[in-house]
Amino acid sequence: MVKIKIENMSFAYRKVPVLKNLDIKIRAGQLTAIIGPNGSGKSTLLKCINGILPVKKGEILVDEKSTVSFTRRHLATIMAYVPQQETQVFSGTVYETILMGRKPYIGWSQKPEDYEIINQVMNDLDLNSISSEFLNELSGGQRQRVLIGRALAQQPEILLLDEPTANLDLKHQLEVMQILKDLSHKGITVILAIHDLNMAAKYCNELIMLDKGKTFATGDRSILDENNIKSLYEVEVKILGYGNDNIIIPLKAIK
């Protein structure tokens, strides 16, 4: 089932075109990776899907409905976004941060069910032990879990993440990817921009390769072959099989 349909969408920062005539279908309940070199438009695509950047040309449809027809608040109950870096000025506690995810649902005051959902999220992501710590005093891995928690408190059908494993050590990278995998098994459509091709190959079952704002290839992990990577990244790679996984070894940059 197609969850998100992007039709002939273009986006430009002022006059610099970043995304050009994209046509993409993203299936529901899958873990989809958007990959591509720096400047290929990965983050921009995520922000366009979420409506953070206004799309002027083309359309984004969620369940066959154009996102333009949703109010901002309604959209926030359908999709949640985890930014790459969050610049907190005044940092609250972990609990307060997750409570903030209920923002689109809260009218004047929060309801008991809001707290039930927060408890659920705190349990699922194992955040109870750090619930009253301040967000800016957490390690990178913990903080990423909290930000995912805030997004989940929005009870989204679609979860968008920009480089969720950047700045994390190996263990926390695996941990975060596993969380996302589990979420997609629960039926949430998870879309992430990611640089680490091995992580993408290991966890994601759908991939979208972007090249200078255009779709280069889409499909399952088999599109991550030596030729595609070579022409997309201008890097020679060797791919080795290891159990069920393919391991991509970068060899050298092509001048």
Binding site: K47, Y81, E86, Q88, K103, Q154
Partner: peptide, 17 residues
């Protein structure tokens, strides 16, 4: 609530509606 969301940054605030 709007100001709370703004504390987390513009993009986060927007994605929170």
């Amino acid at each position: 609530w709007n100001y709370n969301s703004l504390d987390a940054g513009d993009e986060t605030a927007q994605s929170l509606g």
